Computed example of a mutant assay.
Amino acid sequence: MTRNRARQRENGVRVIICVGDFDAETLGGLKAAIAHPEVRRLVLDVTTVTFADSSMLNVMILLLRTGRLVLTGPIAAQLGRLLDLTGAGPLFPTADTVEAARVL
């Protein structure tokens, strides 16, 4: 089961808690949650991601290119392996907590 819970804050930070598997068939909810240009920072809590493939990585890279993305964790093991295997891990700004990600 894939689930996203998004919270909008008045200071322009949107926190999205990603839960479950993320692949080409299950990314619709995440894409809808991030499609708000008025949001100045997107915080993805990826602690409970159980599976992520290249489709998820592609969305994350597109968000990274906007300069608005911060990952918060700890990053789930499977997503961490994907980031390690692709060498993309160091590209992503990360924070230990949602609160810390809000101010990065």
Rank of each mutant, 00 (worst) to 15 (best):
M1V: 11
M1A: 14
M1G: 13
M1P: 07
R3H: 02
R3T: 03
R3S: 03
N4M: 04
N4P: 08
N4I: 08
R5K: 02
R5S: 02
R5H: 02
A6N: 04
A6Q: 06
R7L: 08
R7N: 05
R7H: 07
R7C: 05
Q8E: 13
Q8T: 13
Q8Y: 12
R9D: 13
E10G: 13
E10A: 14
N11G: 11
N11L: 10
R14F: 06
R14H: 07
V15A: 01
I16V: 08
I17Q: 03
I17H: 02
C18Q: 07
C18K: 07
G20E: 12
G20D: 11
F22I: 07
F22Y: 12
F22S: 06
D23S: 12
D23V: 06
A24C: 15
A24M: 13
A24N: 14
E25K: 15
E25C: 15
T26C: 15
T26R: 15
L27S: 05
L30C: 07
K31M: 12
K31E: 13
A32K: 07
A35P: 15
A35T: 14
A35E: 15
H36K: 11
P37I: 12
E38T: 08
E38V: 07
E38S: 08
E38G: 09
V39N: 08
R40W: 04
R40T: 13
R41G: 05
R41K: 09
L42A: 06
L42W: 09
L42F: 12
L42G: 03
L42V: 08
V43A: 04
V43S: 04
L44W: 03
L44I: 03
D45R: 04
V46K: 08
V46I: 11
T47N: 12
T48I: 14
V49D: 06
F51A: 07
F51T: 06
F51D: 02
F51V: 05
D53P: 06
D53I: 04
S55W: 01
S55G: 08
M56Y: 01
M56H: 01
L57W: 00
L57F: 00
N58P: 05
N58G: 10
N58T: 11
V59F: 00
V59S: 00
M60A: 00
L62I: 09
L63A: 01
L63E: 00
L64V: 03
L64K: 04
R65D: 10
G67F: 04
G67C: 02
L69Y: 02
L69N: 01
V70D: 06
L71N: 07
L71M: 11
L71F: 11
T72K: 11
T72H: 11
T72C: 12
T72S: 13
T72E: 08
G73E: 12
G73Q: 10
G73C: 09
P74T: 13
I75H: 08
A76T: 12
A77Y: 15
Q78T: 09
Q78N: 10
G80D: 15
R81A: 14
L82C: 01
L82S: 00
L82P: 00
D84P: 13
L85M: 14
L85A: 13
T86P: 01
G87W: 08
G87H: 05
G87A: 07
L91P: 05
F92V: 01
F92E: 03
P93T: 12
P93M: 10
P93D: 09
T97A: 04
T97R: 05
A100N: 05
A100W: 03
A101K: 08
R102P: 03
R102F: 04
V103S: 10
V103K: 10
V103N: 10
L104D: 15
